[in-house]
Amino acid sequence: MKILDKESGSEFEAIIEKVAESDYSEIKRDKGFIFNWSLEKEYEVYKLYLKDEEGRILGLLSVIDNQSELRLHINLIEVTRGNVGRIKKLDNIAGCLIAFACSIAFKRGYGGFVSLLPKTKLVDLYQNKYGFRQYGRLLAVEFESSKYLVDKYIGSE
């Protein structure tokens, strides 16, 4: 998958893989992350980094596999503060992490079903930006909307 540098317009190859035990101490030291990722250890946690900069984690994703409901639940996503808001250079990191969750949900036979429970006041924004729709208090993508995110952020190549 590709991450876009908004300043230069260049694209960089990114990789997402499971966080290793040794990464947690690194994440804790990294001032770019404000959440306590050690609390996510009981779930599946993935890291995103650029192929050419393996030691530098840019984004983290924590998901819960709910097999009985055929769904993957995103518990937490965080992009390093070095790339947040007005000072951000690299775009699409959170989108890539959400799309990665969608791809796992397809591979596990869940029809791409991915849910999340964001803060109530941000619900509309997640719906507009990523195409989530409401399932009670949760938001979810599945089938076409999940495929859309995989195609957009991960692509075929």
Partner: peptide, 13 residues
């Protein structure tokens, strides 16, 4: 802004 937060975080309730 909230838009920028949504671009970079999924924060649970």
């Amino acid at each position: 802004s909230d838009e920028e937060i949504v671009e970079r975080y999924v924060i649970p309730e």
